[in-house]
Amino acid sequence: MADFQANTRPFAELDRAGRTRRLRRLAEAALTEYDVPVARLTPLPRGRNTAFRVDGADGHRYVLRIERPDGPSVAQVRSEMAWLAALGRETDLAVPRPVPTRERQAATVVADPAVPEPRTCVLYRRLEGRFLDERLSAPQLYRLGEFTARLHRHGARMNGLDRGRADDLTAFGRAQVDGFSDTVVDRAVALAGGDEGVRAALARVRAVRSALGFGADVFGLVHGGLHQENYLFHRGRARVVDFDDCGFGHYAYDLAVTVDAFTHLPHHAELREALLDGYRSVRPATFATDPAVLNAFVGLRRVQLRLRELDDHP
């Protein structure tokens, strides 16, 4: 009886484990679109999307990512895959390599009766390595800084991609012409229970954005989520995964995401300096590492995460 009830309950009422079980069937259907012999499918715990590790009978490992229903559009996901493919062709940066479908498509859309809406799915080669947190070291952050600068340098050459802004405050802001308009800020303050500290943080970042402008030296394609769950290390090299939040923004935003995510560590000041030194070793003439600029974007990131939490748990 319990299994029957679990299978008939509305998808929205299921916990993460229950939704993952439903989405596993959808993942199996998606994999039939690829020329990959599947030996085993294992759910991965990280990220806002649902993902499965795919052990291929060919000896290779892959990751199948199922987009959340409020995530990027199919066209936007294909643009993400186009950037990853270009990075694979044109650089030696360690990023996931997309696997096309049998029809040579970068993504596939799959439906299952047990899931309310069709989902966009992508498959890419799995990167080996270790995710670190408390054990992060200054040399590792230096290498991540180098990686980030090279990523930005490449992203500046990618034109015509269908990606939104990486620094949108909320879904409401994303739907507006100006994602930082007074109306958007008022809504953000209201969502935060009237906290005027949110307005002050956003005023600081608005002033910094205005001073920086939007030239190619300060603004372009960024990863959008460079925290510890999205970068790993293998044989001394930094590797970056999960470009699902990639979009256009100020380069300082990417660095701010990284900095804010390790502020709980006792050696965070040392890590911050190493990250910025590594970045400057590739892009020496940059405003992205200026302390006032970076601190303003750290404030933006904290507001983003707070509003996202409130949006997810109204």
Rank of each mutant, 00 (worst) to 15 (best):
F4R: 15
T8N: 09
A17P: 07
A17T: 14
R25Y: 11
A27V: 11
A30Q: 04
V36K: 01
P37I: 01
R40W: 02
L41C: 14
L44A: 09
R53S: 03
D55S: 00
Y62L: 00
P69Q: 08
D70F: 04
P72E: 11
A75M: 08
Q76T: 14
Q76R: 15
V77F: 05
S79C: 14
A86L: 06
A86W: 12
G88C: 10
V95E: 06
P98A: 08
A114C: 00
A114P: 00
T120W: 09
V122Y: 13
R125W: 12
F131V: 15
E134R: 15
R135I: 07
S137C: 11
L141A: 08
F147M: 09
T148G: 02
R150F: 09
R153W: 04
G155K: 03
L169E: 14
G173Q: 02
G173N: 03
V184H: 01
G194R: 13
V198L: 11
R199E: 05
A203M: 04
A211R: 11
L212P: 00
D217H: 00
G224T: 05
H227C: 10
N230H: 09
D242G: 15
F248T: 02
A252Q: 13
D254I: 09
V259S: 04
T263I: 09
L265A: 12
P266I: 06
H268F: 15
A269P: 01
E270F: 01
Y279Q: 03
A285S: 00
T286Q: 08
F287Q: 12
T289R: 10
L294M: 10
R301A: 03
